[in-house]
């Protein structure tokens, strides 16, 4: 009988111990919650195509451009973009895409980057046969934009202004993820 009592006590102790362990687990879960993602985040910056805000938006309107949703940018900014284009290049007629000043700035003012899900992605191929199907790391977007702003109908006007003569990045990109070169 005494043996049975000790045996029962042992079972009781182990049962209580087991419960204690469970409590410990529950406590651990309580003291280590997931990250806090609550709160409201308010817009500061926005971009799609390179250099649009820098080149085409006047100094007093740059913050406004960054906080105007793309679907409202055309109405808010196209006229100012056209004025800016003609100030940069008073001799603008059309560009190598065949766009008038109004057509070109209408396309630019809605600042979204169009990406083709079916084929090659490039800001523009060398002969401009493929344009705005994405933007790769290698694309010389500045030369493309300078050519479209200053180069006239066939890209040959203002030759000193259609290339910055920096043809590539200072480090080679990677063929595989994450594609960008390691930091300096």
């Amino acid at each position: 009988m005494k043996n049975i009592k000790i045996y029962m006590l042992a079972i009781l102790v182990s049962a209580v111990s087991f419960n204690c362990s469970n409590d410990d687990d529950a406590a651990l879960i309580t003291v280590a919650p997931g990250p806090d993602f609550s709160g409201t985040y308010t817009q500061d910056d926005q971009m799609a195509r390179p250099a649009i805000n820098t080149v085409f938006v006047n100094d007093g309107s740059k913050d406004m451009f960054n906080t105007t949703v793309p679907s409202a940018q055309g109405a808010a900014f196209q006229t100012a973009f056209e004025d800016k284009l003609l100030a940069l290049n008073p001799g603008y007629t059309t560009n190598a895409l065949g766009f008038t000043a109004t057509q070109f700035t209408t396309a630019l003012a809605t600042d979204v980057l169009t990406v083709d899900l079916d084929g090659e992605t490039t800001f523009a191929s060398a002969d401009l046969s493929t344009v705005l199907t994405g933007r790769t790391l290698m694309d010389d977007v500045i030369d493309i934009e300078l050519t479209l702003i200053f180069g006239g109908p066939d890209g040959s006007e203002n030759p000193g202004l259609t290339s910055d003569n920096v043809p590539s990045n200072d480090k080679a990109f990677l063929a595989s993820f994450p594609y960008l070169a390691s930091p300096h």
Partner: peptide, 30 residues
């Protein structure tokens, strides 16, 4: 007010330096 979108506007470039909210570039490709 530099380049692709680096330091493009006053609100994201306090004191002329690029901030954590300052988007410098955006790419999308195959």
């Amino acid at each position: 007010m530099v380049a692709a979108d680096h330091i493009d506007a006053p609100a994201v470039s306090g004191g002329g330096a690029s901030s954590s909210t300052d988007i410098t570039d955006f790419y999308a490709f195959r």
